[in-house]
Design a binder for these strands. Structure first.
Lengths: 111, 111
DNA sequence: CTGGATCCAGAGTGATACTG
DNA sequence: CAGTATCACTCTGGATCCAG
């Protein structure tokens, strides 16, 4: 038992949890946008991201909010106004993610 | 142009490149397995990962190899013997990814 | 043993139209 | 403005069969 390869020891590790948070085509872009421009409104973010549908952006934001990375603040007025920003947890994740960015810049194929 | 949110400034950054390398349900498990047990043979890895099909494992390894993270060594014999291991590039990525793991452990919901 | 080829299921995403 | 509902499509991964 000390040397074999029997089970998936990866399941349930911090890796998989962290990665699950940013899974999704636009999650990183959203967090990045938040980091730079927060607080940001819904359509403002849509414009920033370029080609994202309402549905996808809405869903992604909900998930990020449920995961405690993004804070949503709603103002009871007409027309509606909702502002999104990073939570502390979200900000701390971005610090770690920034290291991925650095690695990526240094190890891109072109270099 | 100095203050607006007009374009997707995220595209093409190191984030997206790095994340693209580990996109895929089993990529991380594979790299993790390699890190611990390299060199590892095909079926050995399959056992380690638990429920992965030949096709998926094969495809993932090819991609990782194409991305320069995994080295494949083939021995011309019958039956075939192929060993996989991490490249230096792969190993350096794992160091960064380990930080994600640490963050994940500290920020899991249960804590 | 190491995969390639083919077919299939499910998740994720986009387009469009509509609501409060 | 800030979403929701519906439908369609793509993409990933799994199952199975087959070849060197």
């Amino acid at each position: 038992m000390g040397r074999g390869i029997e089970g998936a020891s990866f399941e349930g590790t911090g890796y998989s949890y962290t990665l699950s948070l940013i899974r999704g085509k636009h999650k990183m872009s959203i967090l990045y946008c938040l980091m730079e421009y927060q607080p940001v409104r819904f359509n403002e973010m849509r414009r920033y991201l370029g080609g994202v549908s309402d549905r996808t952006l809405s869903r992604s934001l909900k998930e990020l909010e449920a995961d405690g990375l993004v804070a949503r603040r709603e103002y009871p007025q007409i027309p509606p106004r909702v502002e999104y920003s990073l939570t502390e947890r979200g900000a701390s994740l971005m610090e770690v993610l920034d290291l991925l960015c650095v690695w990526g810049e240094r190890n891109r194929p072109g270099d």
